[in-house]
Nucleic acid binder design. Sequence first.
DNA 1: TTTGATGCAAAATATTTGCAGGATA
DNA 2: TATCCTGCAAATATTTTGCATCAAA
Lengths: 139, 139
Amino acid sequence: MELHQQRRMTRQRRVILEELAKVTSHPSADEVYAMVRRRIPRISMGTVYRNLDVLWESGTIQKLVSGGSQMRFDANAAVHYHVRCVRCGRVDDVAMDPPARIEERAANVTKYKILGHSLEFAGVCPACKKREATGQGTD
Amino acid sequence: MELHQQRRMTRQRRVILEELAKVTSHPSADEVYAMVRRRIPRISMGTVYRNLDVLWESGTIQKLVSGGSQMRFDANAAVHYHVRCVRCGRVDDVAMDPPARIEERAANVTKYKILGHSLEFAGVCPACKKREATGQGTD
DNA sequence: TTTGATGCAAAATATTTGCAGGATA
DNA sequence: TATCCTGCAAATATTTTGCATCAAA
């Protein structure tokens, strides 16, 4: 039960948020680091991680666990779903409403207190579909 | 495009699968390692990781990306949903049917070819709920 | 001023891999 | 017997953290 302390809007924190808001992709921490470093060359990876965490804790950004290796971040904090390309790893938003009473249904079949949910589709993105149709086998 | 080679059922691979099938929890690689080591004390972590991967590639087990830190494994390869405790990281199954036409709905709002989906609920498990109710603040 | 935040580097985690010897089909 | 697999250890990859200094409020 950690108390939230007073947070300060430092240049680093602001720029990280600004850069994240610019893109519709869902960058990993090192990609955010690369973007931010163009504006603050001496920023450290530790600062990037610390700020992504602070922004996530305050509900300003989303932290996605997609694929398996790295975390990905999303400046769109509203609940929405994602689809990940099984070929290239690309992640996009899926603009659909949550299935009716889905958390209520889950609560009925577990002893957990349900707080939220995340839904990720797996699929093949347009670019990979096209590449495959053209006969350019990948993998 | 990797060709699957001929696989051998070694003692290590068999015991890993047997131990995984015994539990309904969703152990992480090091938990599997601990379980298997009771039967094969000299097994190495590398062998555990390699085998979990082989079993996953062949569709024998599921690999869950929950939380963010470690992978978790599930001997039940059938599609089903999970709930993860936000306090202790425990993962359990959620016995509910997929929302009606959910992949069809997703297909309508993206350009992806949808292949599947995974749904994970976040919540507080019975043990953590109880601990909190008893006033034993955690974290 | 106070004290949260930063940069740097080292540490902690989690997972992967090279290699020589061992076991399975 | 062929070659897949193992144990061990070193290497990667990712994320976290201690600390002295800096800066937001």
